[in-house]
Amino acid sequence: MNARPLFVLAIALSACTKGDAVRPGGIGSPAPAYSARNLDGQPVALSTLKGKVAVLNVWATWCEPCRDEIPQLEALHRQFAKENVELIGVSVDGAGMGGDVHDFMRDHDMSYTVWLDPDKQFSLQFLTVGVPETFLVDRAGVIRWHKIGALAQGDTTLASAIRQALRS
């Protein structure tokens, strides 16, 4: 195995852990118990994804940096959909905005799963700073990667972290 990608991943993960040691929902800690609603209004829970690699991206339709990273997230979803990876967009749009979220997904060709969280329980559980923010939770339910803010164009750290989580 070529050591270079692992080295790059290690650097990336090290960068992502900056400050996480003091945060609930930090890297290496179990993902908080979290539940939301799906677009049909049915309850959904993170715990049901145990055994899968889960990527949780908290976003909103009014968030410009969120819009910018959607193509990358969609591409990752399509790339890893058959490998037991679940990419979930957690929308913090307000109550009653499920229809807008649905329209937005259609307009932006989003095919990954979206959950609705108008009360921002995600931010309470994961202590997020704002939107967007992305967490990778491994098969055992442990947070392995975290990004505050939008993925920069060409940023491959999330893809690398997914591959690493699939290998472990």
Binding site: R67, D68, I70, P71, Q72, E74, A75, R78, D107, H108, D109, M110, A152, Q153, G154
Partner: peptide, 10 residues
């Protein structure tokens, strides 16, 4: 955003 999978210009 014409195609969601097309990367935006840097």
């Amino acid at each position: 955003h014409q195609d969601a999978t097309m990367p935006a210009p840097k």
